[in-house]
């Protein structure tokens, strides 16, 4: 079984975001693997352990100068091979998905593709379903439990209000992973050493043909408006509670 895991490199959640002019200033940002992608990598490795002959390839699209690092992390966790689609500038999800689809097809296609359920930078949750559509395979998103057999998979997809859909898909298929699917392993020191010797292929984005042109554009970037200073409520608990209910009703008008 040929398994692909799509990774995205994102700023660490503790990152403070600054603007330089009307662009986000990414200098000094600590880059990490998108947290949901860690569940995808872990699940791929677990499936490989149970499936003789299975391989795990990690693939990402991003600027070579930094994005190769996220592949190295995936390789250090245990993936077999990495593929970098070198894109110097950010691409919109439709372009990213089309590029991934093309490269995965060139690599002989996938029996199973795993992604995180969303990337925490743009929160779009779009590349997964778009990639499945471009490859004309079914997908299931926000998966917290998965069992994969030879021809099919059964996934537990989490929906609103703690409800779940139990979905059965015929392979090949794409699954997007949610928190709770597994406990991602850390890259061990031997893993990190081994990763340095693993194959990391590079493909330039502009060497791919027939990609769609961008259909969206960013017009303006801003930081959130400053919050007015907090109003502290004093007194004992009962006083504080009385003050708060009154303020919520009369001043904030939210009750």
């Amino acid at each position: 079984m040929k398994i692909f895991v799509c990774l995205k490199q994102v700023p660490d959640t503790e990152t403070k975001i600054k603007l330089a002019g009307d662009q986000i200033d990414l200098s000094g940002v600590k880059w990490v693997m998108n947290p949901y992608d860690e569940y995808a990598v872990e699940e791929a490795l677990k499936i490989r352990e149970k499936t003789p002959g299975a391989t795990v390839q990690v693939i990402t699209l991003g600027p070579k100068s930094r994005a190769a690092e996220v592949l190295r992390t995936g390789l250090a966790m245990g993936a077999d091979e990495g593929i970098l689609i070198d894109a110097p500038n950010p691409t919109e999800p439709l372009v990213t998905a089309s590029a991934l689809a093309q490269v995965i097809a060139q690599e002989g296609g996938a029996q199973l593709i795993l992604t995180g359920r969303l990337a925490i930078d743009d929160n779009a949750a779009s590349v997964g379903p778009m990639l499945a559509e471009k490859l004309k395979i079914p997908h299931v998103s926000v998966v917290a439990r998965l069992s994969v057999e030879a021809e099919q998979l059964v996934a537990e997809r989490e929906i609103e209000g703690g409800a779940k859909e139990i979905v059965q898909l015929r392979l090949p298929a794409l699954v997007s992973a949610n928190k709770g699917l597994n406990m991602p392993r850390y890259a061990s020191l031997p893993g990190i050493m081994k990763a340095k010797k693993k194959v990391l292929k590079e493909i330039a984005l502009d060497s791919l043909t027939g990609l769609p042109s961008s259909r969206t554009q960013i017009i303006k970037m801003e930081l959130p408006p400053e919050k007015p200073a907090v109003q502290m409520l004093t007194g004992d608990a009962q006083n504080q509670a009385q003050m708060l209910t009154k303020l919520l009703r009369d001043e904030a008008k939210v009750l």
């Binding site: 925490i120 930078d121 017009i219 970037m221």
Partner: peptide, 11 residues
């Protein structure tokens, strides 16, 4: 973007 640390207006 970044869960509200910045905002983008898109067209």
């Amino acid at each position: 973007l970044y869960a509200g640390k910045a905002f983008a207006t898109q067209g």
